[in-house]
């Protein structure tokens, strides 16, 4: 039973089981190089959003504005590119414009995150409401900027982030791996990460431990916003366009992956490795189902069912080890 005692190890088993099952059901197609690469191109965009969600959930919050931030950042970048860099120009000439556009997108993401952080920290708004409202505002700005239609016509170099490869590894996969590693290091090896986790475990105790909770929350939501902006850029690159309502199903997916990965939605617990495993199991599952000609809609069904089943499993007490019910329950 000890192997099953952490959500991460349970998840690892699920991931392997899904992989083995899919390989067995459709060995020649699921394990084909083409499928494996296409999976590697598919998941990073929502997986990055799940990383953003993980960070905010660690503090007991949530960021429902990630899609809005991603699309707004992408729309800003796309508008800049479409108006400054003509579609025909060469790769080398387009690079400065690309850097400018990407920089602008990241800044938009960070500012959007800072707004969330201020709403949560200074106004003490519940994160659900703050990010629900701000998400609508961000999406609304993207709609207003574009009039609701897609922005297109970029230099070819835009495609690299979402569709290119580096040493035959898909670039989006590299981006995701780098961000996941960064988040892991941030959460486990920096003062900021430890404080964010502790804040999630008990916000009041964080205040009494002289943690600057306002600054902490501000930084958490800024990072979440910046991650969302990166996801927005990947989506833009893969779609070769930017639009205010891309990826609307990713919000659910991001929450789902974070919770599936063992992040406690009440805060204080979660590991990036769990989230990565959750991403992989989701991708194996949906790819495999694709092979088996299962419709897209069935995927949504299976995702939702998986989320609920995993939460039910997590409520079971797996560790029957030393239940020290000290009579310290006697507090008066």
């Amino acid at each position: 039973m000890k192997v099953l005692s952490t959500p991460e190890s349970r998840l690892a088993i699920i991931t392997i089981a899904v992989f083995v099952m899919m390989s067995a059901l459709s060995p020649d197609r699921f394990l084909s190089e083409g499928n494996l690469t296409s999976m590697a191109f598919q998941f990073p965009e929502f997986a990055i959003l799940a990383l953003a969600m993980t960070l905010t959930m660690m503090t007991g919050g949530i960021d429902l504005s990630v899609i809005g931030v991603a699309n707004l950042s992408a729309v800003v970048a796309a508008t800049l590119l479409a108006s400054l860099a003509p579609a025909g120009i060469g790769t080398l000439e387009s690079l400065p414009w690309l850097a400018l556009a990407y920089g602008a997108a990241l800044i938009v993401g960070a500012i959007a995150g800072a707004i969330n952080g201020l709403l949560v920290a200074r106004l003490a708004l519940p994160p659900i409401l703050a990010t629900l409202g701000s998400g609508l505002v961000f999406t609304g700005f993207a709609v207003a900027l574009t009039g609701g239609s897609a922005v297109m016509g970029f230099p070819e170099s835009v495609a690299w982030l979402g569709n290119g490869t580096l040493f035959s590894i898909p670039v989006p996969l590299i981006v995701f791996a780098a961000l996941a590693l960064a988040l892991h290091v941030l959460l486990t090896r920096t003062a900021f990460g430890l404080r964010a986790t502790m804040y999630g475990a008990n916000p009041l105790a964080a205040l009494y431990a002289a943690i600057d909770t306002h600054r902490l929350l501000l930084r958490v939501y800024i990072i979440s916003g910046a991650f969302a902006a990166v996801a927005g850029l990947v989506i833009m690159s893969r779609a070769n366009s930017a639009k205010a309502d891309y990826g609307s199903s990713y919000l659910l997916l991001a929450v789902l992956i974070a919770v599936l990965g063992g992040v406690n939605p009440y805060g204080g617990r979660g590991r990036v490795i769990g989230v990565v495993l959750a991403v992989l199991s989701m991708q194996f599952l949906s790819s495999g189902l694709n092979m088996l000609q299962v419709s897209n809609f069935a995927r949504e069904l299976i995702w939702g069912a998986l989320l609920i089943i995993v939460m039910l499993i997590n409520t079971i007490n797996w560790q029957r080890r030393h239940v020290t019910t000290t009579p310290s329950g006697e507090k008066s």
Binding site: A298, E300, L301, G304, L307, I308, L312, T315
Partner: peptide, 18 residues
């Protein structure tokens, strides 16, 4: 089961629709 309401209903949203 005392599961968090937002997450449960996000899950059932996709189950029902799917």
């Amino acid at each position: 089961f005392g599961l968090p309401t937002l997450i449960v209903t996000l899950g059932t949203l996709s189950v029902f629709r799917g």
